[in-house]
Design a protein around this nucleic acid. Structure first.
Lengths: 250, 250
DNA sequence: TTCACAACGAGAGCGGCGCTCTTGCTTTGT
DNA sequence: ACAAAGCAAGAGCGCCGCTCTCGTTGTGAA
């Protein structure tokens, strides 16, 4: 559970040793990322990483307490890379609806481009490995972005009133109070029905992405991209009404 | 890729050896299932299975050519068990809408009750293991059931005309022709828009199930059951219009 | 009924895995 | 200049999947 390496770099000493250490650490991270991409998460082998960087297997334990901590490091890096990509895609649009569309499509595109990393984050848990608490921070960035965009749409009075009413009427009191608590905790200022709408949409896109990346979509369509696009458009239509076509936004 | 054991039992010899073989095979399957439930798919160890059955590790190779073939056997068994549960749940209702609701809820309930088996089927692929072709037959039973129920709703003119029109207008020609080919291949007699509606609904339920079983839903709600139920109801409402409440059907 | 044969289970052994401990060597701060 | 700390390598532990060999035992044909 202990952090392998403190995230804040201390540039004060800049000694020969600390510089070497950063270099080797970067090489290990790069090698582990390459191994992950080629072999998958559960097959990540410390010895293979050591071979790739040209170190003895035992030398790796100077940098990571164990295989699980190396996995944790990769999990955090993957969450951050994914969030960076999605946030950047959303940031290219001023209009929150166009930003949401770009974010959801990028969520899927990043997953398709990085299947092993995506599987590490959202696949069946690696046996004997429990995600430590320091991974939940980076893991929440995408969700926060989506809710933030829904919040903007709500502030601009663009959320579909019918969808909002229908969704709120389906909410049971337990889920509603938990969503309200979540909103209070994170400082959201939108009604729980709107949060539920946003969650529904994200869950839907995540579901179709999981099916595509893990191979269950291929029996239905050989090219999954247009199907995902249709799903995203349906999600946006549910949010702001049927006016939201593919050409909406900037 | 070779089937470890022919599925059709030959009761003709009934010799002492063949009877013993069936017993040991059953014990191995049971032990492997227990190991799978306790340790997860990727950690399934032939030696652990052998210990549990009380055999030498090498003796297992008389029954399965290797670890992957044992995995394949478990995959087929899991697909069949899941399909049995879902089909049975649907079979308890005459009305296709009620049957669809029961089937989708049972799909999630079985996954929650058998997380390791579900992860074996739909999680990130086990490294170095590719699902062999004999697994796709049992894997299609649930999909066929869902499409069959949508087909019944269509035959009874109960599908929501607006949903059907909106979904068809969003279909691109490539996806549409692939769905049409799928329908031809499997003998469906419903329009591609209806197939797409059914696929959308199933994908949605699968997505929320994956998130619950793999642990990504807990940050949102501590009790996922009502959220899944709301999703299923939304899916059914999309199918037959907003009249479909939780109390619909027999 | 006898007997060659095939199925069976156990054991030894191969290379690879995560991980620990020990042993030298190099850099560091005093 | 020197003790202390960091570092890399090697040996070794028990685990893994898998192969090969060797007695033993049930089987079907002679």
């Amino acid at each position: 559970m202990t952090e392998a390496v403190p995230p804040q770099p201390q540039p004060q000493p800049a000694t020969l040793r600390s510089r070497r250490r950063e270099e080797v650490l970067g090489a290990i991270r790069a090698a582990a990322g390459a191994e992950l991409e080629e072999q998958g998460a559960a097959a990540l082998s410390l010895r293979a990483v050591a071979r790739r960087v040209g170190l003895a297997p035992s030398a790796l334990y100077r940098y990571f307490p164990g295989r699980d901590d190396l996995l944790t490091d990769l999990v955090v890096a993957a969450f951050d890379a994914q969030a960076d990509a999605v946030v950047a895609a959303a940031g290219r649009h001023r209009d929150p609806l166009a930003a949401a569309r770009a974010a959801l499509l990028e969520y899927r595109a990043w997953a398709v481009a990085n299947p092993a990393r995506f599987g590490l984050l959202y696949g069946a848990p690696v046996p004997g490995y429990a995600a430590p608490p320091e991974t939940i921070g980076p893991g929440a960035r995408v969700g926060d972005l989506v809710v933030g965009l829904v919040e903007q749409l709500h502030a601009q009075h663009r959320l579909d009133a019918g969808s909002l009413r229908r969704r709120a009427s389906r909410l049971d009191s337990g889920t509603a109070s938990e969503l309200a608590a979540l909103a209070r905790r994170r400082g959201y200022t939108l009604p729980v029905g709107a949060i539920a709408l946003g969650v529904d949409g994200f869950v839907r896109v995540h579901g179709v992405t999981v099916m595509e990346v893990f191979g269950q979509l291929r029996p239905l369509t050989s090219r999954a991209a247009p199907y995902v696009e249709q799903t995203v458009d349906a999600v946006l239509a549910e949010l702001v009404g049927p006016a939201a076509g593919p050409g909406e936004g900037r």
